[in-house]
């Protein structure tokens, strides 16, 4: 089946949407050394899943689905802000802050999941098994989404989120670049460092939560690292780096689809594999050029 077949189209468009959001963000992630943030926020989201389950949104109805997403999103944005605050109180060490929030959220998620489960064990109506199945389904859907399950609703959500994130990035681009380039000094020129840092982390949290529900955790984290990391080896001009990042993200998604389809491999990991090869290619071409210039 061609990847442009109607059955594949929502998955392909959702994948391209996620790629288009991740491409510019990944440049900031790589340069600010936040590569761990995708893993951090996606795992922190597990705490949000626990909260949704304890609050009783364990079903697969539209209301429950919307509430699950809203709670997970709110929890993840909260986690990103806690990471930012902890990083500040920890002499700017965001990696430690991400590690702490990731572990604490995972622990909270497991405990809340157990509480939700044990509550249903004592359900006087005897629907415990049904609820267990629902809860596992919710966790799988939210944490390990499969790109081939993407439907048109997900495509619209991805497009709306994409417009929101790309507009915010464009709107604040000068301040974000100044902050990312020279955080210790930007405040002296009127760039509010905490506000700008929080903005980037919130945008990252939104994109991770959206991406992991559409394409799964592995691709969500990869999309925030690989395109930017590869693009930075291909140009020393920021606008060109952004264009390369976008090309690698979108091209990697299309090629990943084709590879996955041809080899009957899972699509998400195939996209990650193609983008990883693109990174190695960029690294290799950069090193070869340097070698040629030195000889």
């Amino acid at each position: 089946m061609s990847i442009f077949h109607a059955d594949y189209l929502p998955a392909l468009l959702a994948g391209l949407g996620v790629a288009a959001i991740g491409a510019p963000l990944s440049v900031f992630v790589v340069l600010k050394r936040l590569a761990f943030i995708g893993q951090g926020v996606s795992h922190a989201a597990f705490g949000g899943v626990g909260v949704a389950l304890v609050l009783g949104f364990a079903g697969s109805s539209v209301t429950d689905n919307v509430m699950q997403s809203v709670i997970v999103l709110a929890f993840s944005i909260g986690a990103a802000l806690v990471i930012s605050a902890l990083g500040r109180s920890n002499k700017g060490r965001l990696d430690t802050a991400i590690g702490i929030v990731l572990s604490a959220s995972m622990a909270l998620g497991f405990i809340l999941f157990n509480i939700a489960e044990s509550g249903h064990d004592h359900d006087e109506h005897g629907h415990a098994h049904g609820h267990h199945a629902d809860e596992h389904h919710v966790i799988e859907e939210i944490l390990f989404g499969n790109i081939l399950n993407a439907n048109w609703n997900m495509v619209w959500v991805t497009i709306a989120t994409g417009v929101l994130i790309l507009t915010a990035l464009w709107w604040c681009r000068h301040k974000l670049i100044f902050w990312s380039f020279d955080e210790p000094v930007c405040a002296a020129y009127g760039v509010r460092e905490h506000r700008t840092g929080n903005l980037l982390l919130i945008l990252l949290a939104i994109s991770v939560v959206m991406a992991m529900q559409v394409v799964g955790v592995i691709l969500a984290a990869a999309t925030l690292v690989l395109p930017g990391a590869a693009a930075l080896h291909l140009s020393s001009r920021l606008p060109r780096v952004m264009i390369w990042s976008m090309l690698i993200a979108l091209g990697g998604t299309v090629l990943g689809f084709m590879l996955g389809d041809a080899a009957a491999w899972p699509i998400g990991p195939s996209i990650v594999l193609v983008q990883s090869v693109a990174y190695l290619g960029a690294l290799g071409s950069n090193k070869s050029l340097a070698l040629l210039r030195s000889t």
Binding site: F181, E183, P184, L238, R240
Partner: peptide, 8 residues
């Protein structure tokens, strides 16, 4: 303290 890896 600027990050000189930035492509600027």
């Amino acid at each position: 303290g600027a990050d000189l890896d930035w492509p600027l």
